[in-house]
Design a binder for these strands. Structure first.
Lengths: 341, 341
DNA sequence: TTGTAGGCGTTATCAC
DNA sequence: GTGATAACGCCTACAA
């Protein structure tokens, strides 16, 4: 008797029609069921341990109850925090979250959107920086267009370059504010661990920081702006390069906290100490790092909130032009960048 | 023409039967399609931008292509790292991951399993400590039994108390080894931030550590073993209690890294310094914390691997008695617990 | 209020 | 190799 219990089984057991059983169990927008029959059906369902088949329901109703979430790496605190905001909002809306990871390969976003389209996901949230790469952008846009044409909605947590609704952190502004704050603390001689060239998030932060410093009369020489991986290893490697070049900046700005962490490792490996020998700043204000010693100066981004906002965009009507929600950042000065005397 | 393109549309466009179109596009275990017709069908599908409906396929085939992942909090590095192992393995197996969070409420695991059953998830991985609580355990076991009866497989990353396949970290052993190592470094006067009473993971670590220390002739007084939340805030609060009581242990052992981090915050707030005034140890060896200063002594658990193992258990036959995969830990001594002179 | 029957998009079982 | 035609499990006009 392991065979799955279907609604017909329940109907038969309760001595009612399939339709009545359906209405009693899953409700009906129009019809209603008499209390007595309803009770009989519910009892039968309980007795048979009936569990409605969500797939069948989805097919019959013409829409699923799942939303797709695309991340580059769910183990990265940046994405996992956004994911928390999303799962929470999804839960409240009675929706399932299908989690898909590109595993750091932006080209996979296209495949994943296709996958999510096949799943008939009701909505898709793509978390993660957009790229300064026309091929990537148009490829993804095409995939999204096909998805949207099939009736879904989509939002991006990143930059508004796909024509979709977008939640956009004020990276450039945040980086500028940080630059001003650090300049005010006396830093002049700085190096930038700038992340990869193409992700716009890295670029916004990098260029925002550099240009503001230039405006303040403390330009960063080009050779002091390094490109590197957007993660711990990238930071470690780039910082190693900086130190190997024999230069020792007063301050190192890393485009996110993980890069800063990698830089910290390299600094330690070189026998130097933050902030005594070198000041260090990150970006994101990852939760896990908020109480380490020395406190890491950074720019706070409300990641969880951004995830929730993306869900809101994707679930609410929307209508006209793509909506862009700008999210403010907050400069967080800590011990890793003490004021210079 | 926004209406979804179906396989019949493709068949008509290609001038073949529905059956042939299906076989050409999604293959068939038995029948095969002539090269010419196949080409026609594929061309038609391409032209129409056809995307097979995974839900319909699932229904027709009698099985879905999705696996459920249950976590307490996806933003917690512990779970997000496990999640990475799972999504990676799932991707390789061509499966979707449905991510569900209990939001720290163990009773919600039951609902979620029910939800996943409705989705006809092919497998479920429950990540997170099991509880020393018969009601919780039997409740979940019942839900799982119903799920398993409907043909799915399930595995737990935690303790083998549900009768399911389980990936179990050697928490007790790891805690014992850590205790020995720290004892060898000269620590005698220790306090334990023991996490909550009921989660077995906290208990295994707490009791393993305490009992080993006792065996070494350095018993921890009961009042020095504090219960607390299993997260940052729990550690902060408990450490504050310790310090407020006027006692100042040589060493504080926290049952996981987040608790240790919270403790660190409290220690700093009290104007003390780790490790000068107080040594500190955690558990898990969360990636993000590996390069902070001072390095946090901890016990490494191969979280990502454990996720992958859980997926393996859940996808491979299995057959007989519940399988239990014991995963070894590794003591990681860092600067937060220097050898006492 | 309840039941009948057609349809959702695919796969799979049959014949041809 | 190809094509009708039942399922699959449920919802929903429509009819009673």
């Amino acid at each position: 008797m392991a065979g799955p219990v279907t609604l017909s089984d329940v109907a038969r057991e309760a001595g009612v029609s399939l339709a009545t059983a359906s209405r009693a169990i899953n409700g009906s927008p129009t019809r209603t069921v008499g209390p007595e029959l309803r009770a009989r059906v519910l009892a039968a369902a309980e007795r048979l341990r009936y569990s409605p088949d969500a797939n069948a329901q989805a097919m019959a109703r013409g829409r699923t109850t799942s939303v797709g979430l695309v991340v580059h790496d769910i183990a990265d605190p940046y994405f996992s925090t956004i994911a928390r905001g999303i799962t929470h909002a999804a839960g409240r809306a009675g929706l399932q979250v299908i989690l898909a990871s590109t595993e750091q390969d932006p080209t996979r976003e296209v495949e994943i959107v296709g996958l999510l389209r096949r799943q008939r996901a009701r909505a898709i949230v793509i978390a993660g920086s957009r790229y300064d790469d026309p091929a990537l952008t148009t490829g993804l846009r095409d995939a999204l267009d096909e998805y949207l044409a099939s009736g879904g909605t989509a939002a991006v947590v990143g930059q508004p370059v796909l024509g979709t609704d977008t939640v956009h952190a004020a990276n450039a502004k945040g980086a500028r504010a940080l630059a001003r704050a650090l300049h005010a603390r006396g830093y002049r001689d700085v190096a930038v661990l700038g992340g990869p060239a193409h992700p716009l998030t890295a670029r916004e932060r990098r260029e925002g920081f550099v240009s503001e410093l230039a405006a303040l009369g403390a330009p960063v020489p080009d050779e002091r702006v390094l490109f590197c991986g957007f993660d711990h290893e990238g930071g470690r490697e780039a910082m190693t390069r900086v130190l190997a070049s024999g230069s020792r900046p007063q301050l190192v700005f890393a485009v996110n906290d993980l890069v800063a962490l990698g830089a910290l490792a390299a600094v330690r490996a070189a026998g130097l100490v933050v902030p005594d020998d070198l000041a260090l700043s990150g970006f994101d204000d990852i939760t896990t790092l908020r109480d380490v010693v020395p406190g890491l100066t950074t720019v706070r981004i409300p990641l969880e909130h951004m995830g929730a906002e993306a869900m809101r965009l994707v679930l609410e009507p929307g209508g006209g032009a793509p909506r862009v929600v700008e999210v403010a950042t907050e400069t967080v000065l800590r011990d890793s960048t003490p004021a210079l005397v």
